[in-house]
Amino acid sequence: MPKKIDKEDLLADLRRVYQELDSPPSESQYDEHGQYSVSVIRNRFGKFTEGREAAGIPNPDMRGGNNQIPPEDLLDELQRLGKELEKTPTREEMEEQGAYAENPYRREFGSWSEALLAAGYSYDELNRPSTHVAKRVSVECTVCGKTQQRLQSDLAGKQNVFCSRDCLHTWRSEEFTGDSHPLTDRIEVECEWCGDTLDRKPSVVERRTYHFCCYDCMGEWRSEYRAGEDAPAWEGGGELYRGPNWLKQRKRAVERDNRTCQRCGCTEEDHFEKYGRELSVHHLTPVREFYREAGNEEPDFAEVNALENLVTLCVACHRKIEQLPVTPQFSQS
């Protein structure tokens, strides 16, 4: 029967690995560096973490590493040792003459070179000219003016830089208030029915073709321009549902055609004065043809409302075209 391993020997070996790694060992790390197996630690203490605690080893913090040494202390020690040596300290010199080992620096800053940069040493002072280090530049905080080293890649496209969240919040409270706040941006539009000026969010203006100041104006406008044969659901006139992309494609067609009737040249401004409504957008291949081909299925609205199937017309030309026996042909700009 194998001799049972003494508990104190297990604790001593846990402490040895801890000192060797300079951080609380994980199970995989102890498997690699420990004299015994992780299962032995678990069997004796119930859990590996409880064995580590029994050895007096602090548990890692939420970031996965020992956070006993503040980063400011690590940087102060780098600067102190550099002054003592009158040169940039190497990791070996820190191990031999400094207060800490290399691992806390690697854990906190990612690498020894990054720690040196954070301590204020320049690229030329890294003692390792062949080492690849992300390029940093000196920048000033927009609020307090404090100079700091930042990764050049992090500054791409940024007009303002802040040294802390406090400075960021201070800047936002001063710059993004009242009319300066991005959410207060507004675009002036006119009510389609009464002509009153309205302030609308840019996102609302982009989504909607028509704007109304109240439900009454919207109701009056619909009664005038969305009733009878002008109504989208009008069956007697052959109008069918044109799909969810219709309004967006309609707007694109009007803009493509320079807001002008492609048959007679009537402009949008003249059209409003004469008819009190927007220019019409005509389907060269009628919507009903797509429904007929689709049978019982829903037609492909991407084809129904394709720009090449749409043309901008005035009311008069639209009515004339609808009465023609053949598909009209005219140039589109």
Rank of each mutant, 00 (worst) to 15 (best):
I5P: 02
D6M: 10
S26D: 10
Q29H: 02
D31Q: 11
H33T: 02
Q35G: 09
R42H: 08
F48T: 02
E50V: 10
A55I: 01
A55R: 05
P58H: 02
D61T: 09
I69G: 03
L75M: 00
K87L: 01
R91D: 13
R91I: 12
Q97L: 15
G98Q: 06
G98T: 00
A115Q: 00
A119H: 04
D124W: 05
A134V: 14
R136I: 07
S138L: 13
G145T: 00
K146E: 15
Q149N: 12
R150V: 14
R150I: 12
L151K: 11
A156L: 14
Q159F: 07
S173Q: 14
E174N: 09
G178V: 03
D185N: 11
R186P: 04
D199G: 06
P202S: 02
V205S: 03
E206T: 09
R208C: 11
S223H: 12
E224C: 00
R226Y: 04
R242T: 11
L247K: 11
K251H: 11
K251C: 06
N258P: 01
Q262T: 07
R263D: 12
C264P: 05
E273L: 12
S280K: 04
H282S: 01
V287R: 03
R288Y: 13
P299N: 05
A302H: 11
E308G: 05
L313G: 02
C317P: 03
P325Y: 07
P325A: 07
P328W: 09
F330P: 06
